[in-house]
């Protein structure tokens, strides 16, 4: 899997998404404690960490689904605020796919995908549908346009959810443990779609528990623990010689000692 082509100049690409000193707390309990993070154009950043470390919350804060208590999030230098008046415009530039299946159950696959282009971006139905079909082809689901979400498998639903985000032409994609709720045999088909996006040079921020996938796709791995960024390393370094004891312990959980 060679996805590193065209990525030599990464350090010179402009910063697309910038998180500065982000603080998030729920009922006085601090979940994210001063997060700093830059994502450059075309970069794939994978966030890992023990459950409850605030990975998903970080993604939700970036998309302003959660109000934040401090710091700021900037996309293209524009501040993302929960009650900002340009929020819907900025959100179109951020595609998000969630862990649980979040397709609209009362709409067909095609309508799920074309609802936002038509209502939010005011694009003509015909044009939105044509693009939807061509995107569905790319994820191998062109035959499912007329199906309802309940007729799809978990992996198929997640691929549709990815297409639904892509059709708005986002500048950055956020993936929040998109394979965590899937049966093992369906994980691959979803990860392959994400790999394909990485090859096209998409900017992505990915929260995942699939360590092999993280290693294959990431330009940088962020290790988050107790609300702090403890590591920010290229994947090879992170998985072979992480700098902190906590990261070592975390990685150790994914290994099994031989019994015999």
């Amino acid at each position: 899997m060679d996805i590193t082509d065209n990525k030599e100049n990464m350090t010179e690409a402009p910063v697309l998404l910038s998180v500065r000193g982000l603080v998030k707390s729920f009922d006085g309990k601090t979940v994210l404690d001063g997060i700093d993070l830059d994502v450059r154009q075309g970069e794939v950043v994978v966030i890992v960490g023990p459950s409850g470390c605030g990975k998903s919350t970080l993604l939700r804060c970036i998309n302003a689904l959660e109000p934040i208590q401090g710091g700021e999030v900037l996309l293209d230098g524009q501040k993302i605020e929960k009650d900002g008046k340009n929020l819907t415009a900025i959100r179109q530039k951020i595609g998000m796919v969630f862990q649980s299946y979040d397709l609209f159950p009362h709409l067909t696959v095609l309508d799920n995908i074309t609802l936002a282009p038509q209502k939010v971006q005011k694009r003509p139905r015909r044009e939105a549908e044509e693009e939807a079909i061509s995107l569905l082809k790319r994820v191998g689901l062109e035959g499912k346009a007329g199906s309802y979400p309940r007729e799809l498998s978990g992996g198929q639903k997640q691929r549709v959810a990815i297409v639904r985000a892509l059709i708005l032409h986002p500048e950055v994609m956020l993936f929040d443990e998109v394979t965590a709720a899937l049966d093992p045999e369906m994980v691959r088909e979803v990860l392959d779609v994400i790999l394909q996006l990485a090859r096209q040079g998409r900017t992505m921020l990915i929260v995942t528990h699939e360590m092999q996938f993280a290693r294959a796709i990431a330009d940088r791995v962020i290790f988050l623990d107790e609300g702090h960024v403890l590591e920010d390393l290229p994947p090879e370094r992170f998985f072979t010689e992480p700098g902190t004891e906590r990261a070592k312990n975390f990685l150790h959980m994914f290994e099994f000692e031989a019994v015999r």
Binding site: L65, A116, V120, R164, A165, L168
Partner: peptide, 10 residues
């Protein structure tokens, strides 16, 4: 459901 719709810019 609302969160995913909101994240699509609705």
């Amino acid at each position: 459901q609302s969160e995913s719709a909101e994240s699509l810019g609705m």
